[in-house]
């Protein structure tokens, strides 16, 4: 068969655009999102340079004046910064989604014969991969400053698993914010003035038991605190035991993280889907 007739045969047989299988759709879109990172490596600064900078700043600037009995502050700090980084996966989703909506990319995708949910699923997976790169970078950084997994592989992985679980819950927050805000600047403004302080009002960077009572209550109920506590417990770097009169979540940090993640998902996901549909339909 000559090249020309072959070309015609391909031409006739190929266009049966039934829409790809959903897995192919999601993978195609994830690859597209990851190509963005490859083309603009500076997109990764939020999960690489920024957390490393935090680790170093806190560990060496404040480290001398913050004492955690029974453990080196630098090792203790690392899970706190990981929890903060994973909370920021909501930020990554919000920025990516808002950009795609604003530039009409979501409309183009919606005009194709694809499962519309693959738009959100791929955004979420890309953000988790993005954040995971940060967690990996921080783990390596941690090895240099004395952080170790001391309680064995199973518990070590459990901590990472809880981290990812919480990340998936926070992604719904990102879908909500990314769909509801009208510009990238608005997304930036809202996320910086909410998620950023929320991650600080916790045990991520400092002990809660020396905080004023009202602040301590807020900090100890903060899901970031349960998550950081769960990682510290399972990596064997919690230092002093949790106070007897500390609230329930700090005594059961794994379960508390699970419940927080489910609760955030159950409350925010319907709002997020409604916001996304309202923004992208009509």
């Amino acid at each position: 068969m000559s090249a020309a007739t072959e070309a015609i045969a391909v031409e006739r047989s190929a266009p049966k655009p039934q829409g790809a299988g959903m897995v192919r759709q999601v993978l195609t879109l994830v690859r597209r999102n990851l190509t963005h990172i490859k083309r603009q490596p500076e997109m990764l600064t939020d999960v690489t340079i920024q957390p490393i900078m935090f680790v170093l700043l806190f560990a060496f600037v404040f480290g001398g004046s913050i004492q955690i009995p029974g453990v080196d502050y630098k090792a203790w700090l690392l899970p706190g910064i990981m929890a903060q980084t994973i909370a920021f996966s909501s930020f990554i989703v919000a920025i990516g989604l808002n950009t795609d909506i604003g530039k009409g990319m979501v409309d183009r995708l919606r005009s194709l014969p694809i499962q519309r949910s693959s738009i959100l699923i791929s955004r979420s997976l890309s953000a988790i991969i993005h954040s995971s790169i940060g967690v990996a970078v921080m783990s390596v950084t941690g090895l240099f400053i004395g952080w170790r997994i001391n309680e064995g592989i199973a518990k070590g992985l459990l901590a990472y698993g809880l981290l990812l679980l919480f990340g998936f819950a926070m992604i719904w927050v990102g879908i909500l914010v990314g769909s509801a805000m009208r510009s990238i600047e608005a997304v930036n403004g809202l996320m910086f003035t909410t998620i950023f302080p929320i991650t600080f009002l916790s045990n991520a960077f400092a002990r809660t038991d020396v905080m004023p009572a009202w602040l301590r209550t807020i900090a100890e109920w903060n899901p970031i605190s349960s998550l950081a506590q769960a990682m510290r417990d399972n990596w064997g770097i919690a230092g002093i035991p949790v106070r007897a009169d500390a609230p329930w979540p700090l005594h059961h940090p794994e379960l508390a993280t699970l419940i927080w993640s489910l609760a955030i998902t159950l409350v925010v996901a319907p709002l997020a889907l409604r916001a996304f549909n309202a923004r992208t339909t009509d």
Partner: peptide, 24 residues
């Protein structure tokens, strides 16, 4: 507004949409 992906090449843009259509 031309809705192509600024950060992909022309070829990658075509492939992106072709893959989403489920074409061979």
């Amino acid at each position: 507004a031309a809705t192509v992906d600024d950060l992909l090449t022309g070829r990658e843009n075509l492939r992106l949409i072709g893959d989403l259509y489920g074409l061979d």
